[in-house]
């Protein structure tokens, strides 16, 4: 579809541009400004050049947090995408079940991040939480405050519970747009359930899956609120992700310069990885 040609359209975009400038560009410039200077408050600045960047890039703390982030995003994608596709495939296509399923699916998405964190923080507690207490009663040695693995599992399960719905809804939208004739033809061709998925459903879901993967990657890579509420980055540093470290550095230690430099590095990593995801997934589309 070609677009309507109209110069006046630019005027309509102007408010958005102004808004984006205030909400994104100006803060970003402030961050850039901080990242190359040193300050102790009182509006006194000293030129620091690339010092902060070098310091961050040479710190083990940064690389460990980055590894945690990458691993976390990988696990999240590996769990949520297949699970989301699986649930979407098994959702009803017509009848009263459709609205019921859609509402149920949308529910976790409607809960604010910090509330999700609080829910799970309580839910997992071994003294009063339903999950923690039950596991204890069953003889499972579960304690997310003490055991790093338990902390990780809790955060991952929480994120899966919170966000798989998004993948489900996107995939479901892709699935319902497939005409019935495709399923009929596949039946006639004697296709197995797997073949139907592989050759009809997956190709037709490709576009929405691309969006789902991008959104889930970016979101999980930037995860902050939930681990902050549940584990506070612990036990030890085991769930200290980049975002949590950043806040510790900026708010806790008031190291504004290094925090700003880290923000920029963090931002560039997300940008780069998203671009890689997008390019890889769309190029396979163009070839086939």
């Amino acid at each position: 579809m070609q677009k309507t040609w109209n110069n006046k359209a630019w005027f309509l975009v102007l408010p958005v541009l102004v808004l984006v400038a205030f909400s994104a560009v100006i803060p970003l410039m402030t961050v850039v400004n901080y990242s190359v200077q040193d300050t102790f408050g009182n509006n006194e600045f000293f030129w620091a050049g690339t010092d902060w960047f070098l310091e961050i890039l040479h710190s083990d703390r940064f690389w460990e947090a980055l590894q945690r982030n990458l691993f976390f995003s990988f696990v999240i994608l590996a769990l949520q995408i297949p699970l989301g596709i699986f649930i979407a495939l098994n959702m009803p296509k017509s009848g009263i079940g459709v609205p019921v399923c859609l509402v149920l699916m949308a529910l976790p998405l409607l809960i604010p991040w910090n509330v999700v964190g609080t829910i799970w923080q309580v839910f997992g507690r071994v003294d009063i939480g339903l999950l923690g207490y039950t596991l204890r009663a069953l003889g499972v040695d579960y304690n997310y405050v003490r055991d790093p693995l338990d902390a990780w599992i809790t955060i991952i399960v929480m994120d899966v519970w919170h966000w798989t719905s998004l993948v489900v809804l996107l995939c479901y939208a892709g699935l319902v747009s497939i005409p019935d004739a495709y399923y009929q033809a596949a039946k006639i061709d004697g296709a197995s359930r797997w073949s139907v998925f592989r050759y009809i459903q997956l190709p037709k879901m490709k576009r929405v899956l691309l969006i789902a993967v991008l959104l889930r990657f970016m979101d999980s890579f930037m995860i902050y609120t939930e681990p902050f509420v549940v584990t506070g980055g612990g036990p030890g540093n085991s769930t200290t992700f980049l975002s949590i470290d950043l806040v510790k550095m900026a708010v806790g230690q008031f190291d504004l310069g290094p925090a700003a430099a880290m923000s920029i590095i963090y931002f560039l990593i997300i940008l780069l990885l998203s671009w890689i995801f997008y390019t890889v997934m769309t190029s396979s589309d163009a070839n086939g």
């Binding site: 005409p179 004739a181 495709y182 009929q184 033809a185 006639i188 050759y199 009809i200 190709p203 086939g288």
Partner: peptide, 12 residues
């Protein structure tokens, strides 16, 4: 075997 109104082929 059936041939439908809109061609059904396996795109990939």
């Amino acid at each position: 075997a059936q041939v439908f109104q809109f061609p059904v082929i396996y795109d990939t």
